Simulated assay, not measured.
Amino acid sequence: MSEEIRIYVADLAAYNAGHLHGVWIDATLELDDIQAQVSAMLAASPVEGAEEYAIHDFEGFDGYRLGEYQGLESAHEIACFIEEYPEFGGALLAHFNDLEQARKVAEEDYCGCYSSLADYAQELTEETTSIPQHLAMYIDYRAMARDMEYSGDLFTLETGFEQMHVFWNR
């Protein structure tokens, strides 16, 4: 992923008064730095006494949708997870909609990225089984992959052309 993971934090007092006032912030910065940028934005508000803010937009969350009233800490944790797992973090969060579960699956159940599930079935079979050379060409890895998927033993996330991330489903 080449896109910066950032949030647009809007000043709600200004917004309610008909002014667009906010700031784009790198959501992977330290939480204190994010809060300092929000405080500076509120201090520069065109409306006196501005205190409330909301996340009105976001970029780089790769398929995961932040809520408008998502807290800064939560948005920061999600952004850091996506930064840690840039190839599938956003898609995994969108799949589970739960950061802790997504983290557990990423750390414990990730099998790798393959161009197809059949490629994964072939790699797994060849690593775990001794296949006589004269029988190797008769193995139907696409059928094995289909059976693996139907059994519920694993799930996949497609994040691009021939980019299938495979996870055990425990």
Rank of each mutant, 00 (worst) to 15 (best):
E4A: 15
E4N: 14
I7E: 01
Y8L: 14
V9R: 02
D11H: 04
D11K: 00
D11G: 06
A14L: 06
A17N: 14
H19V: 12
L20F: 07
W24P: 02
I25V: 13
A27V: 08
T28V: 12
D32I: 15
D33F: 08
I34H: 03
I34L: 06
Q35C: 05
S39C: 13
A40N: 03
P46A: 05
V47W: 01
G49P: 07
G49V: 05
H56Q: 13
H56M: 14
F58R: 12
E59V: 05
E59H: 08
G60V: 06
F61H: 03
G63N: 10
R65D: 15
L66S: 11
L66C: 13
Y69N: 15
Y69M: 14
G71A: 08
E73H: 11
A75W: 00
H76F: 01
C80S: 13
F88I: 04
L93E: 13
F96Q: 03
A102Y: 04
A102M: 01
V105P: 03
Y114V: 05
D119P: 07
T125A: 13
E127N: 15
S130C: 08
L135M: 07
D140K: 11
D140G: 01
R142W: 06
M144Y: 08
D147F: 02
M148V: 00
L154N: 05
G160Q: 01
G160E: 01
Q163G: 05
M164P: 09
M164E: 09
N169Y: 13
R170S: 12
